[in-house]
Amino acid sequence: MPATLDTLSADRQGASPYRLLVVNGNTTATLTDSLALQARAFFGAAVQLRSVTAPFGPPYIASRAEAAISAHAVLAAVEREAALAEQPFEACVLACFGEPGIGAVRERLNAPVVGMAEASIMTAMQRGDRYAIVTVGQRWPAMLREQIRQLGVDSRCAGILALPGNALDYASRSSESAAAVSGALDQAAELGADVVIVAGAALAGYLPSLPRPPRVPVIDSYRAALAQALALASLERAHHFAYSRSRSPSDSPGQ
């Protein structure tokens, strides 16, 4: 007999934490520490987290050339961590909005792989008809336009706003940088966005630092990726569990 919903719920309550890998595609270790801290606060005891930094590449990706280098580094980091892990990871988050190497990682890792751009854009489209993106770096708008065209969601993008300066300078969350992010969110709303994505690892966890509430709903791209990774890992585990419980002894060879 197939397992009942009550049985499934009871067994899930005693399940072990989900095994999640977070990869910072930049080489700034302090940023990895911040991302890991945020993830542990977000998940609590539900996840066993492993966070790693790209072994080579730029301190923070700001161009196509740097993204290409980082893609190699991300793949190398994922393959190394997968080989060393005592148990397979149940999901992986690429903690970089440009998602360097995500296709290659999905090809090599037998688990859901979530990127910050795809996760946050899909989340934003569930909150409103048109979304906008706020990020840091003058080359990013053109790079992101290419990315959203590949995802097929460019028609619902109201605009991409790039803050000036170095993204790592914003990670300090000074009052000046928080005011700049807040102003960009207002500009995004004026473009007609129903929801705005705060994009990039350096801007992860920024919302509590804003000087005033945003005018429209805001999606933190990193938290959107974390939430989707947990959802996908949960679905994968539930599917495996339900299939295992539904098999009767007569299905086994030799019975």
Rank of each mutant, 00 (worst) to 15 (best):
D251I: 01
E236V: 08
L35D: 04
A171T: 05
L109V: 13
A95P: 14
A184E: 05
S172I: 07
V113M: 07
R106N: 04
E107F: 14
V195C: 10
F241C: 03
F241N: 09
A95W: 03
L207W: 02
F97V: 14
P253E: 05
A229K: 09
A225E: 09
G137D: 13
T53V: 12
P208L: 05
V74T: 03
L5W: 00
H240I: 02
T53Y: 04
L144V: 15
V218I: 13
A65Q: 15
S252L: 11
Q87N: 08
G200W: 01
A83M: 06
Q228E: 15
S252M: 06
L203D: 11
V153I: 10
P217T: 01
P249D: 04
E86A: 12
L94G: 01
L151V: 01
H240K: 14
R145N: 10
D154C: 01
A180N: 04
D11C: 08
L37N: 11
P217F: 11
Y243N: 14
L144P: 03
P59H: 11
P164G: 10
S34C: 07
V22I: 15
L31C: 13
R130Q: 11
A71T: 06
L210D: 01
A46F: 03
G192P: 04
A201W: 03
M122L: 05
A39T: 10
V47H: 06
A111D: 10
F241I: 03
R156F: 09
S155Y: 02
D220K: 00
R215I: 02
V181A: 03
A231N: 02
S244W: 06
S63P: 13
H72T: 15
R245L: 15
R247T: 06
A180H: 12
S34D: 15
A179C: 14
S63Q: 14
V105C: 13
